[in-house]
Design a protein around this nucleic acid. Structure first.
Lengths: 146, 146
DNA sequence: GTGCTTGCAAACAGTTTGCAGATAG
DNA sequence: CTATCTGCAAACTGTTTGCAAGCAC
């Protein structure tokens, strides 16, 4: 894994390179994303930024997340029945292990076989862009809570 | 793959076994789900049912889909930025190949290695319930449309 | 100074819910 | 007969959009 500081700089530079401005609100968001291990929701991020810049609005968070997502610097995990979650630390597709009770998301130590995606590419005629692999379960803590 | 008629009967029997009523609206939905190859949305299903029972409401479709999902007889593919899609023909988890342009969803001829899910089960301490594997791409038809 | 960005509020869309009347078993 | 189901309409929730004022560069 890349350290937080270099990841922050990479995000910041990406903005500059694409002629976007680094506002204090954006800098705060970039820092949070660079450091995040826990797949925060937009509202998690918003709450943390609001602590530093009380007038910040959710719209700003959403707009910046959208921007970074377009650039491929943030991975969005969309859920139809829950807040979307964001990974700006490691935006490449990777498997996620999701607790269906508490909605905690961790990165399990496995890899999706490249060959599997390659096989689809070869056989389907589709131009493959990415993938998503979610495993659902109940985390140890939630099992304890019966 | 199971044929449409047996699948319909299985769905119908499942409802009876759990003390639920087979209304004409539900029967129509069950038939559509049993036959569906194309991962229809709730609104697709609603439109088709409304052709037969013009007073049907979306709520009825949603309620019945929810019921069948709880029973494990329908697989729901939730999307945060698009309608959810439903597979009542083959409700076991299986990979999906999704066109990011036209949102068509097909079942690619691959299988997720059991060993991968097993590995997570063994190592994580989570009680595994299911999984979802989506591959995103552009279908041949949409590539043609430039 | 220029025009991208912010923050507010209203709009949005799919889904869910509450309830009174209808109906399957 | 009676509990479940339907259909309507309103509510809900996370996200997006429009726009005037603000600020990065």
């Amino acid at each position: 894994m890349i350290d937080t500081e270099s990841r922050f700089k990479a995000l910041r530079d990406k903005l500059k390179q694409t002629d976007h401005r680094l506002t204090p609100q954006r800098a705060a968001l970039l820092r949070l994303l660079a450091a995040s291990e826990g797949h925060p929701s937009a509202s998690d991020l918003y709450d943390q930024i609001k602590a530093q810049f009380p007038t910040t609005s959710p719209a700003t968070v959403y707009k910046t997340l959208h921007l970074l997502k377009e650039m491929g610097e943030v991975l969005e995990l969309g859920f139809s029945d829950d807040d979307n979650r964001y990974d700006g630390h490691n935006p490449a597709p990777h498997p996620h292990l999701i607790c269906v009770r508490c909605h905690k998301i961790i990165d399990p130590p496995i890899r999706v076989a490249e060959s599997l995606v390659q096989e689809v590419t070869d056989r389907s005629g589709y131009k493959i862009i990415g993938h998503r692999f979610d495993i659902y379960g109940v985390c140890p803590a939630c099992q304890g809570r019966a």
